[in-house]
Design a protein around this nucleic acid. Structure first.
Lengths: 145, 145
DNA sequence: TTATTAAAAGACATCCTTGTCTCTTAAGAT
DNA sequence: ATCTTAAGAGACAAGGATGTCTTTTAATAA
């Protein structure tokens, strides 16, 4: 349902946001170690985020990744389309090419309702929203076991 | 989100149920042709359904697949676990191994609500329920384009 | 019993996601 | 200018879902 890339992306962004006061730039090595995420694979995910303008990066000495003015307002749905799962919201559960309100598959209507809720959630939720939940030991919850 | 196997399974079962009055046994060839589904792959899916007792099959001359007394009461969630997507209901969206009500990830709570609805839907819906929607040209909606 | 039929079983290829490694590029330190 | 550092780019491998083909097994017809 949700790819690993998506999870890695969200967690990395949140990590950068939470660490922003301590350091303005954070290296890939630190992120992958702290969050327990495969380093080289994460590099590609981060790269996509940078290209999309969701994060900033600087090469070379004292380089690294950082959030920018846009980051906190990015909606989760944007990150989902980057990592390729937004099609989930439109694909027919029964894998029919043609399935819509006029020619519904046998579960179309019931599934459509729930889908709308998911879509609404990820269209409205931003990175900033997630950070607001940062009451207590939030950082710990980013780390994979 | 939902595998092709799942879609193939549901559609095949519904096809068998709808054709029951015409023929008591239907061959793989007919199903795969009518529903536009890859033949050999479908064979494996059907085989799982038979092993699970959801469908019956007879080998050899005049053999084929058919529904049984159990079929209509089978819940969609059972077919989902056969085709391997029921784990979707428990896996953390951020791919964290440890994510629960006590140690929630940043989106845990909101996702959990929606998940419960999905789970409830597929735990309650049966093949028979889907057939009740068979008001008009339902069969057409089983055929992939 | 033998031939035919159709499912079952198993080998193999393909595609996509994930994961790993090496080389290149660019930024800062010296 | 040169060296060091860290991101970027590209090649490659592993794994699972999907798709294809061949061989085996079992049921019926003859």
């Amino acid at each position: 349902m949700f790819s690993k890339s998506f999870g890695y992306a969200i967690r990395s962004i949140l990590y950068l946001a939470l660490m922003e006061e301590e350091k303005d730039k954070i290296q890939l090595d630190e992120i992958s170690e702290e969050l327990n995420v495969p380093r080289y694979f994460l590099a590609k995910v981060m790269n996509k985020l940078v290209k999309e303008g969701i994060l900033d990066s600087v090469k070379g000495h004292n380089g690294g990744f950082s959030i920018n003015e846009k980051t906190l307002s990015v909606k989760l749905i944007s990150i989902m389309s980057l990592t390729g799962e937004s099609s989930q919201f439109s694909k027919c559960v029964l894998q029919l090419g043609k399935c819509n309100a006029s020619y519904p598959c046998p579960i179309h209507d019931r599934v459509e309702l729930l889908r709308r809720e998911w879509q609404a959630l990820f269209k409205s939720l931003t990175i900033g929203d997630l950070l607001k939940k940062n009451e207590n030991n939030f950082m710990k919850s980013l780390i994979a076991i």
